[in-house]
């Protein structure tokens, strides 16, 4: 199949954070991802778009080996983080996931307090030496998640009691609390109302300063709003990858054009 050429037209010279080469994913007998090769840049928001079932979420979950938790899923090809193959035998997926955090489609706060939700990651990774340090990490993460002002007076309240948008920002705060290098977001706004979506999108833009962010989205407008790079998936193939503005205004592949103009999808 046809692979999107990797364009080196970036304004700022940015380093590649994650590189994927000829990645194949199988669910039992189903070939879900075919020959995907892509370079994801540091300090950049990359969005994956495409019709439902095109494999964009599956590919995203390969990037921090979340697919390991599914028995029948098999991944082939090479995916590297900072040049290190993440599927190599010696790599501990647990350490990998500490570096490549993830935010999910549905907000999924643990049934614990807001504080414990955020503190959970730092605790299991031993990032704090004492309570004061932990407090500091939690506050920083909540601030970075743009939710500190709303919850600072009720850190002991259960995380499940927040509104949908707040819950999702809490989950983002929870993800950044472990100081990841890459943040994967699987349709983070699909369960949110427009106002909450706007808040989360704003947050994503801020996160770009420190992380490489990869976001899967159904909404082309959202991709256009938040991302600098866009990859279009179709039937398990990466059809086109490039600057967001270029993909949306001047796609090279006819399938991309059909999708963007609403003829397929």
């Amino acid at each position: 199949m046809y692979d999107a050429p990797l364009r080196k037209t970036d304004v700022e010279a940015q380093t590649t954070k994650i590189a994927a080469r000829d990645v194949q994913v199988y669910y039992g007998d189903t070939h879900a991802i075919k020959d995907v090769s892509v370079d994801l840049l540091d300090k950049t928001v990359t969005s994956f778009i495409g019709p439902s079932g095109c494999g964009k979420s599956t590919f995203l979950r390969c990037l921090n080996r979340m697919n390991d938790t599914i028995d029948i899923c098999r991944v082939e090809g090479l995916i590297s983080l900072d040049g290190q193959d993440i599927y190599e035998k010696r790599v501990d997926p647990v350490q990998l996931r500490a570096k490549v955090g993830m935010v999910f489609q549905k907000p999924n706060p643990f049934p614990k307090s807001i504080y414990d939700n955020v503190a959970y990651g730092p605790k299991i990774h031993g990032m704090a030496r004492n309570k004061a340090e932990l407090d500091e990490i939690v506050e920083k993460a909540l601030r970075r998640g743009a939710i500190w002002d709303e919850v600072k007076d009720r850190l002991d309240a259960p995380g499940t009691g927040l509104s949908g948008g707040q819950q999702q920002r809490l989950c983002i705060a929870r993800a950044v609390a472990t100081e990841p290098e890459v943040l994967l977001m699987d349709e983070p706004c699909s369960a949110l109302d427009p106002i909450a979506t706007a808040q989360v999108e704003e947050l994503i833009d801020e996160l770009r300063e420190q992380y490489s962010v990869v976001i899967v989205t159904h909404s082309m407008q959202q991709a256009a709003r938040v991302s600098q790079k866009t990859a279009f998936f179709h039937l398990g193939n990466l059809v086109e990858y490039g600057e967001t503005s270029q993909i949306f205004t001047n796609p090279t592949d006819p399938r991309t054009e059909s999708y963007i103009t609403g003829r397929i999808g």
């Binding site: 979340m66 996931r97 570096k99 999910f104 999924n108 989950c171 929870r174």
Partner: peptide, 15 residues
């Protein structure tokens, strides 16, 4: 217990 809670925890790098 919903799978999303497990995903959330694994996604943070918990064993």
């Amino acid at each position: 217990v919903p799978q999303s809670l497990r995903d959330g925890s694994y996604g943070l790098g918990a064993t």
